[in-house]
């Protein structure tokens, strides 16, 4: 019982991080109908930028954890926003309107470029930091096994749910969100109504990059260890989460992330750790057979 509860807590935390990355996949897919495979690597870049920021701030003698984290996040988010904007401008916009697979290949290329760039500039080793947010509460104790809920896990859950709320609000209730949905449905018509579609798409990538940086920072703080390859693994999982939840749906992305996180952690806890990915992807396959548009996805609106 206690063991199950602990696995549940761990699974939810992991799922929240996946979900936060998945939101970026889902937003970009929503607006231009392509999978931005470089998104996972923007997450990795965001984690590195946060780490560099924290090291620099420590060098300047800023030791207050909340202030250092806030400043490092703002700087990292601004820089990875530039990454997101540039990726769209350089790798995707010139291919808009060409055949569907072209931007997809370009995205995979962009992902490799980012990975190699970080590998060359930062090295291939793992970077470790000490836990900045220590401490936990003991939820229950049973037969000598204490169920721990760390403050870090609370932070991850709160941040993810807060960001999801803000971005759901943005998409459904603000002019920018309406413009995004209009572009999603009919790019040409949106432009005829005076919407700068290029700018709207750029902003979507910028927002996606900021979310990825938030996820990168949480990942860094939670695991305390990053390397140039984390973007690939986490990216594939998050992409799976977005598809599972119904790609194009924001709450679906977080729900899909939770599902993948829980499956992984419960499978690792009760079956076998090496097969946790097999379990996660099997569930994806089964869900897609019976619900092709995912858990919360709507059926495709036919475009005439």
């Amino acid at each position: 019982m206690a063991y199950a509860l602990q696995q549940l807590i761990n699974g939810v935390t992991l799922g929240m991080i996946y979900g936060l990355i998945a939101v970026g996949y889902t937003m970009v897919y929503g607006i231009i109908g392509m999978i931005n495979f470089a998104h996972g690597d923007v997450f990795m870049v965001g984690a590195f930028l946060t780490l560099i920021g924290l090291v620099l701030l420590a060098g300047f003698g800023i030791t207050s954890v909340p202030i250092a984290l806030a400043l490092a996040f703002i700087a990292a988010a601004a820089l990875s926003a530039i990454y997101g904007w540039t990726i769209e401008r350089v790798a995707y916009r010139p291919l808009r309107g060409s055949f569907r697979l072209a931007p997809l290949i370009s995205a995979i290329g962009m992902s490799i470029v980012l990975q190699n760039f970080v590998q060359v500039s930062q090295g291939a080793r793992d970077y470790n930091i000490e836990p900045l947010i220590p401490g936990s509460i003991t939820v229950m104790t049973q037969g000598g096994f204490a169920v721990e809920l760390s403050w870090m896990q609370v932070l991850i859950t709160v941040v993810t749910l807060a960001l999801l709320a803000v971005f759901t609000w943005l998409v459904t209730r603000t002019p920018l969100g309406r413009a995004m949905r209009a572009c999603e449905q009919d790019l040409k018509m949106a432009s005829l109504l005076g919407i700068d579609t290029d700018r709207t798409i750029s902003l979507t990538f910028v927002i996606g990059a900021v979310l990825a940086t938030a996820a990168g920072m949480l990942f860094l703080l939670y695991y305390g260890s990053i390397n140039f390859y984390i973007g690939f693994t986490a990216g594939v999982k998050a992409f799976t989460a977005a598809v599972l939840g119904g790609i194009g749906s924001l709450p679906g992305a977080v729900l899909g992330g939770l599902a993948i996180g829980l499956i992984e952690s419960l499978w690792s806890g009760y079956a076998s750790v090496p097969y946790k990915n097999v379990a996660a992807f099997s569930v994806l396959a089964i869900v897609l057979i019976f619900m092709p548009s995912g858990l919360l996805g709507r059926a495709d609106i036919e475009k005439v």
């Binding site: 803000v166 309406r178 413009a179 949905r181 449905q185």
Partner: peptide, 30 residues
Amino acid sequence: LFAGMTVLENLMVAQHNALMPSVVNGLLAV
């Protein structure tokens, strides 16, 4: 029409430039 959006939203989208003259306004609007 933007078939998936509401009738009112279709008319609001057309007033996008009055509502969001710049990116900064768009972010403040959130």
